[in-house]
Design a protein around this nucleic acid. Structure first.
Lengths: 196, 196
DNA sequence: ATCAACTTTGAACGGACGTTCCAATTCCGC
DNA sequence: GCGGAATTGGAACGTCCGTTCAAAGTTGAT
């Protein structure tokens, strides 16, 4: 399957259509007819290139989970700020894939296969974030860094959800406050920090 | 519809079954047959009590959104700690409804009707949280309180998601750190707070 | 130019879905 | 305990779903 040029192009058109439909209407709204119509492809061609409808959905899901990690496999020198920036850009920029990514969080709760993938991706990200935390503040113990990483990631996910649901929500501004940027008082974690 | 005692009981059994199935398998996994089988009710009886499958799902969704607000309509004197505690208890305790609530966040991204409900519920909660923030720290401006409330709520939602996906994740411990409890350094917002 | 491998197409199929309908039964105020 | 209203159950219906299949067309190495 998909050894000729035309086959690969068709495969790409199908993936594009699936990605668009998944972001617009979610997994429950996706049908084979809608995919093949939008991709301008016969049903038979679809089954020549993918084993099932589930297969193409999983492929898109896999890509979405990968996309949340900026330049994965790089030299591992990211600042915590870099990681947060990358996530905010991912969320506010490529909203197509971002919507899919956040749907997965909810869907992973019920679908075991998806839950496993989400959890694996989550654990990888915790590693990167906690490493960045220790680079940021070398005095942190590994455990403390991991906890801090998980809290920051959770907050980012929640902020991303809010941003996609509430139009006009300024995710970047809120994300900046997570690590104390912006110079204003009132950050999470220091509610009644003594002034001066 | 539902004027006799038996009718009301049947209605309740259908709602229970829908709630359970929704939490276990999500909205995409729910079918009329499964609902009626689990509720031990004929299909005709179902349509005697509800207009459609969608109607009963919406009813459960409405209840789930209401349930996230602790004792709503009370005297409005909650501490920020109270609100956070209530949310953590809601998430870690009643996982059936909690799962539905978090699915809604993801589903609301695609279904307009659900998105509207979720957004409305969200706005109400922001009000309560930001009022608590100002009670906590009267020096906050209304805007600053609202921003702080939204960040805390986002972090709570994200933590809840992590808790449901990652077994063994200690949500309460992480939530406590959101407002600086626990006495340990390294809270979000004060990454490099000077020790001593 | 040849030809095997690859690709395309849409009709056809079986199953699952939500909903309708109505005869039989049960409920409960009188 | 009578009688109208509410409730019950499940067969039947039309629709839409994912998938299969075989025949026709296209590709590209030789």
């Amino acid at each position: 399957m998909a050894n000729y040029r035309v086959g690969l192009e068709t495969r790409e058109r199908i993936l594009d259509a699936t990605r668009t439909l998944l972001a617009e209407d979610g997994i429950e709204g996706i049908t084979l007819k809608r995919i093949t119509t939008m991709a301008d492809v016969g049903v038979g061609s679809f089954y020549n290139l993918f084993d099932s409808k589930e297969a193409v959905v999983f492929e898109v899901v896999r890509q979405a989970l990968d996309a949340v990690d900026p330049h994965p496999g790089s030299s591992e020198g990211d600042t915590l700020e870099d990681l947060i920036d990358a996530f905010v850009t991912f969320m506010t920029g490529s909203s197509t894939i971002a919507r899919i990514y956040l749907q997965l969080a909810g869907l992973g709760l019920t679908d075991e296969a998806i839950a496993a993938r989400v959890l694996r991706s989550h654990r990888r990200r915790v590693q990167r974030f906690s490493a960045a935390c220790r680079r940021d503040d070398p005095s942190l113990t590994p455990d403390a860094a991991r906890e801090r990483a998980e809290t920051i990631m959770a907050a980012l996910t929640g902020l991303g959800l809010t941003a996609l649901i509430d139009p006009g929500f300024d995710m970047r501004a809120h994300a900046d406050r997570l690590v104390g940027r912006g110079g204003q008082p009132g950050n999470i974690g220091s509610p009644s920090a003594p002034p001066v």
